[in-house]
């Protein structure tokens, strides 16, 4: 897929929670957004941040478009960003009308369901729920019913719940029990009768490995979205490598970020 460098004009910016911000933008020059696939990401430029230097890789949370007209009116790409460090905290200061430069879309996303394998569980932990919204939207548009399993430390970490509920059935776990079932996503009761063709997972590494282990036990196909530290985001610097069974070290930014767990050398 062709990569683009785009200046987005920020159309929406809201601190949903002390640790998360939701940003939406539309091409500043009035052009259309490029085609983007669920699970792909963007490299966001961080302006005015003296202590950071590199772009920040952020997954594409959602894409909305006005399908009625052929203009870009109403076309927005959304990023749900966890405030993890100085760069993301700087991104959280963006206001409506500001410009955000991004390289988009990047990487390989989640596999879409097929009529032979239609049932996909979209399992997210913390800010890892972000790319699953676009995945759910694309599934629904293609006539498939997504099921979400969203986990967080507490109710405040389960962001934008109504958006997910509008697309499919949503199950929730929180570590403190303030929403949904108490515990980790792997402890949810839905696993007792899990009948899925694939699980698509995005979240912290221990959580993804736990879900991958469960998927393996239950012989369910499983894809995970990795977030290895990266610099370029387009397969040039070779910093973000993951070790794979067939190809050795591959760039997460280019060959991933989504991998089938069978490709990886994970000890699970």
């Amino acid at each position: 897929m062709k990569k683009h460098i785009i200046d987005l004009r920020i159309t929406f910016a809201d601190r949903l929670h002390p640790r998360y911000v939701l940003i939406k933008g539309t091409p500043a020059d009035g052009s259309r957004l490029p085609e983007m696939l669920p699970g792909q990401f963007a490299q966001l430029k961080v302006e005015g941040s003296p202590e950071t230097y590199l772009r920040r890789p952020i997954s594409i949370h959602d894409v909305t478009s006005d399908t009625v007209t052929s203009t870009n009116k109403g076309e927005e790409v959304s990023f749900l960003i966890a405030l993890a460090g100085k760069g993301t905290r700087q991104l959280a200061t963006l206001k409506v009308g500001d410009t955000l430069n991004c390289i988009i879309p990047l990487g390989r996303g989640f596999s879409m369901p097929t009529t032979d394998a239609p049932r996909i569980l979209l399992c997210g932990g913390g800010v890892g729920i972000a790319p699953l919204l676009l995945m759910g939207r694309r599934m629904k548009e293609a006539g498939f019913e997504p099921t979400f399993l969203l986990g967080g430390r507490s109710a405040g970490d389960i962001l934008r719940l109504s958006e997910y509920e509008a697309l499919g059935k949503v199950y929730v776990t929180t570590e403190d029990g303030s929403m949904g079932e108490q515990g980790f996503v792997t402890q949810h009761s839905l696993w007792d009768n899990a009948a899925f063709d694939r699980i698509a997972v995005c979240g912290p590494m221990p959580m993804m490995k736990a879900v991958a282990r469960l998927a393996k036990e239950k012989a369910i196909d499983c894809e995970v979205s990795l977030e290895n530290l990266m610099a370029c985001g387009i397969g040039a610097c070779l910093c973000c490598v993951e070790d794979t069974k067939e190809k050795g070290h591959v760039c997460v930014c280019k060959e991933g970020p989504v991998f089938n767990i069978n490709e990886l050398k994970w000890q699970i």
């Binding site: 003296p50 230097y53 590199l54 530290l229 990266m230 610099a231 610097c237 910093c239």
Partner: peptide, 20 residues
């Protein structure tokens, strides 16, 4: 060459380190 193991980079003030 397979290069070094991950992690291979760290951002630093106005720069970065790599050990690809």
């Amino acid at each position: 060459r397979q290069g070094n193991a991950y992690p291979r980079m760290a951002e630093t003030p106005h720069g970065m380190l790599n050990c690809v």
